[in-house]
Design a protein around this nucleic acid. Sequence first.
DNA 1: ACCCCGGCTTGATCGACATCAACGCGCACC
DNA 2: GGTGCGCGTTGATGTCGATCAAGCCGGGGT
Lengths: 227, 227
Amino acid sequence: MTVQMAISTRVSAAVEARTNWMAEQDLQEPLRTAGTVIHIAQGREIFAEGDDTDVFYKVVSGVVRACKFLNDGRRQIEAFHVAGDLFGLELDEERLMSAEAVSDCILVCYRRRIVETLARKDQTISRQLFQYAMQNMVSAQAHCLLLGRRGAAEKVAAFLLGWAKQSANKRVLHLAMTRQDIADYLGLTIETVSRSLTQLERDKVIALPSTREVKILNSDVLEDLAA
Amino acid sequence: MTVQMAISTRVSAAVEARTNWMAEQDLQEPLRTAGTVIHIAQGREIFAEGDDTDVFYKVVSGVVRACKFLNDGRRQIEAFHVAGDLFGLELDEERLMSAEAVSDCILVCYRRRIVETLARKDQTISRQLFQYAMQNMVSAQAHCLLLGRRGAAEKVAAFLLGWAKQSANKRVLHLAMTRQDIADYLGLTIETVSRSLTQLERDKVIALPSTREVKILNSDVLEDLAA
DNA sequence: ACCCCGGCTTGATCGACATCAACGCGCACC
DNA sequence: GGTGCGCGTTGATGTCGATCAAGCCGGGGT
């Protein structure tokens, strides 16, 4: 195998710097020597629909958006991945989603075949992969409810709460993504996202010290909206 | 274990009567002795949000809807499950979805702990569970794109094609579900679903011999709409 | 310091889908 | 064979979010 200790050591070091995440160390442990570290610049594509599925990734730092496109360019962002999240694992040969770096990112890249081989021997790895799939399934299903049955204000409120859950500081959020990204995540337009945010600000539910920072003043109202 | 041969034999017999489905026999084989057969009448609840996750199911015959609700009663149907589909497997103790019988159903009910035990010894079972999760993830993600970024006509077209894929006869479909079910699956209202269908009929894309039957006259147009 | 440009906000108007309302149809049940 | 009722269709109107358009703000480059 082409996996060197030098690289995997750097992985560990980089990983220490991340914000904590539930199943992180569970998955980290058995795979420590199976991945290589890569850096991706803001805005860069990590993979595209139709690409080979020979590798998948884990976020060490930064934010990644996973998305799908229609022919005419309409985009749906399925998820924002943050430190600790796995992404890019698929069943078939061809990718059904693309992924791009919302901010500068450090990722660990795993060769799928190698991990599959490891999983065949190591129950903890296969268990982790199963949990990865189940968690993504659950969040995609929650996302369906959001997209199908909620109004604009509710969507934005739910997004803010969801992002807060992924963030270290739960009171003041840093939005790594643009309004367009948020809109494409929520099935809205940038204008509607913007208006919803300013409305929440007028209602003293949030404050917007800068366009990319959101201070949550009244999380109860947000919870109600997203309920 | 409380699993009798008599019952599992009946399972096999019933399963033979189902329409064929990809991974069906793969999963059937190792689990044959682990499930019990149950019958559910049309409209009946199979489980609800918040219930215990001690069992999961496979559809032998009939159609099941898996859905989520908001406090105010708004409903989002995540999927329609047909013969061969697994459903109701979750990671946590409490269910995040509910399931109801769209038509009279025959199901196989598996005890989760037993299957988990089997999966620990049998790679093929754990592999099947992984594929279950991955497939549900993929279809939920496709559903997100549908809900977030498509118009009413496109949604209905996509639904018809999707349902055709799950049906034996790909030219004339029998809709087991009501317009309300379709609407809640697509994030629309019954009126909009109805109007979209009659519009497709006017355009000679489909025929509607009865309210629950759809004959596909021009699948190319449908594919274009759903593209 | 200036400009430039991409991202964001705000306002005016439009349009797709929701809502409200009425009716039709098939079917089970007396 | 009525009658009631659930389900579906159709029409009129309303509304939320999209679209179109203009201007603002802030950061980077020269």
